[in-house]
Each structure stands twice: as C-alpha cells, then as structure tokens.
Design a binder for these strands. Sequence first.
RNA 1: GCGCCCUUCGUCUAUCGGUUAGGACCCCAGAUUUUCAAUCUGGUAAGAGGGGUUCGACUCCCCUAGGGCGUGCCA
Length: 470
Amino acid sequence: MSDSKPVVTRIAPSPTGSMHIGTARTALFNYLYAKHCGGQFLLRIEDTDRERSTEASVQVIFDGLAWLGLPFDGEVVFQFARAERHREVVLALLDAGKAYRCWLSGDALTDARDKAKAAGHALRSPWRDREPRPEDLAKPHAIRFRGPLNGDTVVRDLVQGDVTFRNRDLDDLVLLRSDGVPTYNLAVVVDDHDMGVTHIIRGDDHLNNAARQTLIYQAMGWDAPDFAHIPLIHGDDGAKLSKRHGATAVTDFATLGYLPEAMRNYLARLGWSHGDAELFSDADAIAWFDIANANKGAARLDWDKLNHVNAHYIRLADDSRLTDLVADVFAARGEPLDDARRAQALRTIPLVKERAKTILELADQLVFVFQARPIVLSEKALGLLTDETRARLVRLSDQLAATNDWSAEGLDSLLKAFAEAESVGFGKFGPALRAILTGGSASPDLHRTLASLGRDEAMARLNDALSPFA
RNA sequence: GCGCCCUUCGUCUAUCGGUUAGGACCCCAGAUUUUCAAUCUGGUAAGAGGGGUUCGACUCCCCUAGGGCGUGCCA
C-alpha cells in the first residue's frame, strides 16, 4: 500500500445475533488505527447469510458501536445489497478463466473432498477441467475459483509477519452458490476493494482466509490491502470466550454496569500496549495506537482488571450522568426512582462513587438513603445497642438536633468533638449509629451518611430507634 | 489427519543479543480506620521443555509439548 493513500479501515460484522466483545475490540482497533492515521473507519454489515441475518441484529450492531463510542464514517454498506456487483465480478473471473462452473454437490462433493485430502491437497472439482454440456448449464450449479495448483501465496501481515501458504492447500472455493448468492470470501474481497479499504484488521481466525482472498485479489489484478490479524479474546480459563464465561455480548457489559470509556481503555490494552501506560484517554489511545504493536498471542479477559479500570472511570464520571445510569438500574429492577429519590441519588453519588467498581455496585451503595422508616434493625444491629450505647446516642442525638451546621464538614467536627467529650473512640458508638441510620446496609463515613440523609430524615431515623429511651 | 498461528509473574503486558527481566490487576503484609471500601507503603511471583548459533540469549534457528484457528455452496 502506498503511504500517500489515506488509510481506510472497516469493521464487518455479520448480523446474526449479539455483538461479541471480540468484535467490539476489533472495531476499536480499526477505529483507533484509522483515527491515528487521519483516515476513515467504515462499517459493512455482512448479511449474505440470508438464513441467519436479522434486522434486529443489524440494530444491535448500530447500538453496540454507538454505546462504545466508535462512530463509523460515511454510509453503512450492506453486503447483500451488492450481490449484483459480486456476481459481475464472478462472471469476470469466469470469462478470464479464473473460475469455473461446478455441478458437484451432495455425496459426490464429499467424496471428492475426501479423495483430495487423501491425495494431499485441497479440494479441486472434476469440473475444473471439464467442458460443460449445454444441458448442464440449465441445471443449478456453483461457480468455483480456479486456484493455482503449485507455488506459494504469502500473506504479508502487519501483526503476524509474512505467512506462507502452499497453494495446493488452498481449495477451489465456491464464489457463487448454486442459488446465485455470492459467498463470504468473494464478497469480502470485492467490497473491501470497492470501499477502498487499505487495512484489514480482524481476528486471526481469518488468517487462513487471507490467503484465499489474496488469490482472488491477484486474479482480479487488484492490489491487496495490508492485513493485520489480531488474536482472539479468550475467557479466564483460556478457552475461546463463550456464554459460559458470563458475558460475551457488548450489551452484557453495559448491563453489568461497565462504562463505555472503561471498555475502550480495557479493550485497547487487551492485545496492545504502549509502554507502561495503563489508564489513558481516547486522545492518548489515538495518538499512540499502532497496529504493529499488537500482540500475537490470545489474551484472556480479566474481570478484576476490568473492574479496576471501570472504577477509575466511575470516579471521573459526571454525577448527573451517573445518576441517570443508576436510575436505569433501579428501573430495570422494577423500582424506578421518583424525583425525590433521584435528587437524593444525585446528592449521594459524590460520596459513594469512589467505592464502586460498577454501576450496579454504585446503585447498591445508594440504597441506604432509600430505606423506608421505620427501619427494621437486624439482630446484629440490635446487639450493638447496649444501654450504655443507647444513652450515649441519645446525648449525641441532642447535639445533632441542636446544631445549625448540617454540612458534612460540620458534622465531621461535631462527631469528633463528641467522641472527645465522651472520652471514647468512634468504635464505642459508630457502629450502632450506622446501624440505626442505615439498617445495616453499606454506607460512607458517618458524617457523610448523616449529611446525605439530610437533617430531617437522619433525625427521624434516630428518633425511631432511640425515642423509647429518651 | 492436514495446514496455519501462538507460548515472559495466576492474568494483561514491557523487553526488540548484554537489565538485579520493568509496570498494571489479583494476592499477602503494614499504615489509616466509625461498617464495607477506598487510599498510601512494602512484598511474593515469570521467560513451556530440549537442542543449537553467539563472547553473551527471553530475544535468532530447529525439535518437542501445550493452546488456538482453519480445513463449508457459514461468516
């Protein structure tokens, strides 16, 4: 590829289900590389499999890319809509003698394949060298590529290096099915060429296909783009990432409370690195990204590290945005937040956001403010309320009632002064106070808990628990 | 079976012939401490095995082992 050409990359998923996180990572690499080079990142929907492609899955891809924050350039290309163009190329190949009509199917096909294997080479149809009779033409048939029998095909891969295949191992693949629908390997080549794709960055499960596709480029007299085959993402046990690993789809990660910017950062570091950089902005990623620095080996998804990265971005996130996300979580749980609770959430999030690894955890850490009075104390909480502690909390309650500074800072001072005046550590009343205020759920530092509850609610909760002894 | 790819701490990775093999996550210890966390400090932990090449290999070559992908009229 000449350096003067603007870089064009693409992501080409097939709309046959959810958007796999591996596809997302591939999209990210394509996006980063294109932006790094000042080029374009295109989207093509590979919907030539009419059986499995669905409209809904197309939407999943749009939604997935949008959620991840990887906008594509230009118009989306639907592969199936270009079938005429694909057929045109196949016919050109046929005219040039680079392809042939083949009536092999069923058991005969299987036999031919077995025979070829036994002979030590990939499938060659007997029709490769047979002149079809006029009556054959009327019968349904496929069109196969006429692959070279000898020599090598070298795939010059930016990540894997030069990979050499013997042409005898590359089969005469079907270009056009007997129903007239073009196949993947043909359509990919035609589309990538027509779309001006200069760099194909994709999973290394396609490395073998690259050789076949290179042959098609050569047969058409087209320049092949640069290839970069990146390793797949595996689960924490080293096996290919699948459903049993807990999450495979982009939407799964969203549902589990991961932020898109965290996913971008984490995914970028999976199979690629820039020195010791771990947490970096999108701008840094774009400035640093070079496909040549991608790793060759497969990487395992590490939930602990993902959580760490996510926690980092939750801290950086805007509170009102987090409030929206948390509201979504509660709504999904069937407990939508009313305006009052929303306001409470917004007020409390700054106090708890630094302790949450996911949005789900963030939501859990908010429930203490939503507790309905009177709060039912657990047995453990009740156990903390000895007579001595009750008496002490009554004294504290009086001071709280009297203060006119209900800010977190003011309450912090008050609590500290109280502990000093009582000549005890926080341990003598803190746990009990917390239990009364929260019913036992996790909460931030006591002064912050009091502040986020607000004076009225906090005093009411205290009175609920202490009034019989006041 | 055949073809191709891969292999540094448990995990993600740095290293591009000469380093006490570095960083991050996890884990452990200490500090802090009003729950749970967070935070700070410190620590444990690695070149799959075997041959070469070289004054010198994690780094280059070969073999073996392990893992992955492909071997479709799926993509």
